[in-house]
């Protein structure tokens, strides 16, 4: 199963600043194994969604060009301290993970 994500949401002015670190190998499918010369099969996060108190705020589609163990930062206007932000991802093999944090 996927490793846990790290997440933090903090207010700066009237904007909530959300930062997420995910654990994922992000294989593009173009890289070769140094020992066998075989292509390493693609394995990357291709869908990321974020919600604020259950309302969708961000929907992203990713390719293999995002770095390993991806970092994502985004900002939401109109959030308040105590609001719940959730971030979920899904990869091309159907694995998924979700993290939740309260805005502080």
């Amino acid at each position: 199963m996927a490793e846990p994500m790290k997440m933090r949401a903090s207010m700066s002015g009237d904007v909530a600043d959300v930062k997420v670190l995910m654990n994922h190998p992000m294989e593009t499918g173009l890289r070769k194994d140094a020992k066998t010369g075989q292509l390493i099969p693609a394995h990357f996060i291709n869908e990321v969604t974020a919600t604020l108190n259950g309302k969708p705020i961000l929907a992203a589609q990713w390719g293999g060009g995002i770095s390993k163990n991806p970092y994502l930062g985004f900002k939401v206007k109109g959030a308040k301290a105590g609001d719940k932000v959730t971030v979920s991802w899904k990869d091309n093999k159907g694995e998924s993970n979700t993290a939740e944090a309260a805005v502080s």
Partner: peptide, 12 residues
């Protein structure tokens, strides 16, 4: 729903 025109990430 209020998300700002801002993203930050790391790419290859």
């Amino acid at each position: 729903n209020g998300a700002e025109g801002y993203v930050s990430t790391r790419i290859k």
